[in-house]
Design a protein around this nucleic acid. Structure first.
Lengths: 223, 223
DNA sequence: ACTATATGCGAGCACCGCTCTTGATATGTT
DNA sequence: AACATATCAAGAGCGGTGCTCGCATATAGT
């Protein structure tokens, strides 16, 4: 459907200038030179359009990160490359990042179609744990914590090669922490919570972020 | 100004049901039985109202967390209590948490009045580092990273007792990480990114969060 | 040629933030 | 007491939003 593509392209273009909450169906229609009511032939609601944009953004981000990091052999370097690539994509397209990891649009419930593309980058991290055969354990990791992660550890469809993994449960728990931290740190930077905390220059921001990636690598026992 | 109070109370009440993006000045006016135009006698714009709500939310959250944790003597326990109290407040009032740490409302720039209340909880963490006299250093911490944190380390107004601190720069850097992680993890949970990853039950969610707090405590060298 | 389906348009509804004019009610001053 | 002034609220209205519905047209299938 070429017209649907045109709609999502125009909508994504609008996301370059305005946040997800202010994305306007009427503005997209104007951009395409058609009546706003015509849009609803292809998209049932503004929320459905947002869902399409979310899936597209997850895939775009994963494509970029994957392309940039697949060929990095050294595991620690690859981990850092993934984190840095995530941050770069977010800085390039802050509104789309906010669409993925910011506050969900009011009353919006993520449909099933979004969870698969959302796990692509975390899967890269799992791949690293896989190759590293991480066995490090951490004092705080208990049977109770392991049990709280069981849903993930048993879902083979979304989490790649989790059935034949050879890293420990505690490594998985730490990997989860690392991933949450990467997204959380990028959100902090993007949403203005680094003001008066870390230097405003790009170099300072990047230096601190890279420091975090190193600490996380140590934490996970990579390298 | 009693009426202004009534406005913010009504607005906060509306935030119990609807997200910050959908907060409506007209609805607040309806709630108060007055014309929407009358609101603008007390608040110059919707954004200014949001700013008032942000400041109030920062202060409310800090009040609750501080009250719950001030009397905890053991430093590690106090740290965990702070994290857990933050999460509880966020679960109680998810929309207000999103107002503080979710995607900023479009085109909104945080005014000066918000930064002081925003630093109150991080200051509690600094207090812990202070008492613990943490000297642990981490391999990844370099002079470059220290330099990127200089703005914070020199701002005495917002960061309590930072002039006479007796913990290392690297401890500060790790404390910053821990704080970002707490907020990031809560955001992940609140915004739906823990689906199919951690168990859906409250007990599972809390178990994993507490695990994270323990790991962070170890990382910071508390206890 | 006739029907059926697909696609687009425009008017319209109810809501939004915000402004401006008008009017009522206090308050203070001579 | 009478007037002037400041304060507050209301209502109409502007341009914007998501979305629906009826109508027109174009294309396709038989």
């Amino acid at each position: 459907m070429a017209i649907l593509d045109a709609i999502t392209v125009a909508a994504n273009q609008q996301l370059l200038e305005v946040g997800p909450a202010d994305l306007s169906v009427r503005a997209v229609a104007r951009e395409l030179g058609m009546a706003s009511s015509a849009i609803y032939r292809y998209v049932s609601s503004r929320d459905e359009l947002l869902t399409l944009l979310i899936i597209g953004a997850f895939d775009d981000m994963a494509d970029v990160v994957e392309a940039k990091t697949r060929r990095v052999a050294d595991l620690r370097r690859r981990w850092k490359a993934i984190g840095l690539a995530c941050r770069e994509w977010a800085l390039d397209e802050p509104q789309r990042f906010a669409l993925l990891y910011g506050s969900p649009v009011a009353g919006y419930a993520a449909p099933q179609d979004t969870i698969a593309p959302a796990t692509r980058i975390p899967n890269l991290l799992i791949g690293i744990l896989q190759e590293a055969k991480v066995e490090t354990t951490v004092p705080a990791f208990s049977a109770r914590v392991a049990r709280s992660l069981k849903p993930a550890l048993s879902d083979v469809n979304t989490w790649a090669s989790l059935s034949t993994r050879d890293f420990s449960d505690s490594a998985f728990a730490l990997g989860l922490m690392a991933w949450a931290h990467v997204i959380g740190s990028i959100s902090f930077e993007l949403f203005g919570h680094r003001h008066n905390v870390v230097g405003d220059s790009m170099a300072d921001r990047r230096a601190y972020f890279e420091f975090e990636l190193d600490v996380l690598a140590d934490l996970m026992g990579i390298d």
